[in-house]
């Protein structure tokens, strides 16, 4: 009995769906025809040709009237930014060289970085440390960004692939995915990572912004933040925020593949390997096998002496041993 009752019902449902499909297809066709008509009209009136670069890096020439600006939803933008952020820039291997003999503890790098990434005053993607390695060796200032290791311990331990190594050598953090376990902080020998313990500094202003993994803004409570080698700037062909902000010529930034690095203050471009070879370049704690992409030139022949008031702080770390 029940089956017989079912049958006619099913039929009507199928019929309904068929009708709906016809109406749907019809309206899609109709509207596209109208759109095509409008476009045809536009083409006739304008007829200008422009060049556009596709997301796949293809240069195309089209009628200007054919081009419609893509207004993406916030979600679509996020997907795009996430993909671009994880892919990195093909063919590049970014490196930084920090000339310790030039650093005068001006800290312009620190403030530029904190402004760009909306960090709290105690959150440092880059931190200028006062160093004293042994009792009789002279103290010096040492800017310390993330070392963007080629064998990054932080990336190995991350349980969710929130922090990752890109083909261009940059190590990023995706705060849309980070679960806040802080294993990466524990694993990093350079203390390069910070955590958003509280609501981030510009949480309210940034609330509507689409998250850009290459800038790590907006920052999110309960997730990690770290130095990004200013991946957003680098994508535009610019130098990182800290590098351009330095008044003393401390930083060089460039591409290892091109063997060229540019000084952020003088804008002078020099050979990367020659710079290291001529000045005794080195990396921090190479014995850990992390293979940093940040190189240091020793604090030899400093023009400005180490400030007396900073001496105690520099010696503090030493006195523990």
């Amino acid at each position: 009995m029940s089956e017989q009752e079912e049958k006619p019902k099913k039929k009507t449902r199928r019929e309904f769906l068929q009708q709906l499909g016809i109406v749907g297809i019809g309206s899609v066709l109709g509207s596209s025809a109208i759109l095509a008509g409008i476009n045809y009209d536009k083409k006739k009136t304008e007829g200008q040709r422009i060049r556009i670069l596709t997301a796949e890096n293809e240069l195309l020439e089209i009628e200007k009237s054919d081009a419609t600006p893509v207004v993406k939803t916030k979600y679509e933008n996020l997907t795009y930014l996430q993909k671009q952020g994880r892919d990195g820039i093909e063919g590049k291997r970014f490196v930084m060289v920090i000339d310790l003999s030039k650093c005068q503890n001006a800290r312009k790098c620190m403030s530029a970085c904190q402004n760009a990434h909306h960090l709290r005053p105690e959150q440092h993607h880059i931190n200028v440390l006062k160093m004293e390695e042994t009792e009789n060796t002279p103290p010096f200032y040492m800017p310390k960004p993330c070392q963007h290791c080629d064998n990054p311990p932080c990336v190995s331990v991350c349980p969710v692939d929130a922090t990752f190594k890109r083909q261009d050598g940059i190590v990023l953090i995706d705060n849309e995915r980070c679960i806040g376990c802080r294993f990466c902080i524990a694993a990093c020998p350079y203390s390069a990572r910070v955590f958003n313990w509280a609501e981030p500094l510009h949480a309210q202003e940034d609330a509507d912004k689409t998250y850009d993994v290459e800038l790590n803004v907006p920052q999110k409570k309960g997730t990690i933040s770290k130095c990004l080698f200013s991946a957003d700037q680098v994508r535009l062909g610019k130098l990182p925020y800290c590098v351009s902000a330095c008044p003393n010529g401390v930083y060089y930034f460039g591409d290892e593949n091109e063997d060229a690095v540019t000084n952020g203050t003088t804008k002078e471009t020099v050979r990367f390997r020659k710079l290291l070879a001529d000045n005794g370049g080195y990396t921090l704690m190479p014995e850990l096998g992390t293979k940093p992409r940040v190189y240091y030139l020793p604090p030899k022949g400093k023009e400005v002496p180490f400030q007396e008031k900073d001496r105690d702080e520099a010696a503090e770390h030493l006195s523990h041993s």
Binding site: C158, P159, R177, I179
Partner: peptide, 26 residues
């Protein structure tokens, strides 16, 4: 209770990576 984002706990199963000791531990 130690997690910064306990709301994303499921990420461990969605995006879990075999090389992390946390995934082994779970």
């Amino acid at each position: 209770s130690d997690m910064g984002r306990p709301d994303r706990l499921l990420n461990v199963f969605i995006h879990g990576r075999v090389q992390s000791p946390i995934v082994w531990d779970i």
